[in-house]
Design a binder for these strands. Structure first.
Lengths: 149, 149
DNA sequence: CTTCCTGCAAAAGTTTTGCATTAAC
DNA sequence: GTTAATGCAAAACTTTTGCAGGAAG
């Protein structure tokens, strides 16, 4: 999954959009391209070089609906976005509660399995149809720690 | 931890506020009391019966700073708040991506231990000073599933 | 009494929406 | 050519801030 070539990514994105009756337009291509080169989830402000703000919001909503993009919830003020996990690989986040920086990390497959098993059990008990889990670390990043924040 | 008596909770809250040079006022007591009776994290709108909106935001920020309250990040539009975990016990959330409802759940202690161990290792590698983790299930709650959402 | 908190109203910031124009198919 | 997406500007909403009056210590 990781390292997927740009053309593969475009094909996948286009397929998913078409399934929803949506077009894979220039602006949407630009958003997907930018997200695919980013090592961390991007805030709206980091995507408005490509596309005006209102179009960014609208297109990210469409891309999320089509399963191409995922909205990441952080402690910061504005939303962040990344490519869907089945396009980039399942991962987690180190979220700096001081500066809002988000860094991707992966955890050992054996732990993922244990987590999934335990959560499936919980979800079943609560009659909750689980779609996915979210496991993040909240703390202080290297830079903020060095700056005494 | 769970089932902590109201007076214990008040004492703990007051101690933590005092440590920050803050007072435990009527409005802050009301917020803590309301949060302590809630089974799920509450949105600002659910706290404005007690206290005007601007005071709610200000006081929740103070209470968070003092370690009495925790801001919970959900997929919804507005922030939600709950009592700090060391006052109520460590737990996780079932978040309904359709209606925004949040339900508390606990996972087996053995899994918590495994998660903590693995995350400590990751954090150390990334020079990230971890404070706590956040593990949530995103999916569809019983009611939304029944309603076909 | 002095300091900090409150509550109103206004401001700042984020996200959504209406509408005429432009691009996609 | 027809339908849907774009980009601007305005609106809606969430959160923060200024300040006069009131409560806490």
């Amino acid at each position: 999954m990781i390292g997927r070539m740009a053309s593969d990514l475009d094909t996948a994105a286009e397929t998913r959009l078409r399934r929803e009756g949506q077009r894979y337009t220039r602006g949407r291509r630009a958003l997907v391209a930018t997200l695919s080169t980013a090592a961390t989830p991007l805030a709206i402000g980091e995507l408005t070089a490509e596309v005006p703000q209102s179009s960014a919001y609208r297109n990210l909503a469409v891309l999320e609906q089509a399963g191409v993009v995922r909205r990441v919830i952080t402690d910061g003020d504005s939303a962040r976005f990344e490519l869907a996990e089945d396009l980039t690989g399942h991962h987690h986040h180190l979220i700096c509660s001081s500066c809002g920086r988000v860094q991707d990390v992966e955890v050992p497959p054996s732990l993922e399995r244990d987590i999934d098993r335990a959560l499936d059990r919980l979800a079943r008990k609560a009659a909750f149809a689980s779609v996915h889990h979210r496991l993040d670390l909240i703390g202080t990043c290297r830079d903020c720690a060095a700056a005494g924040r």
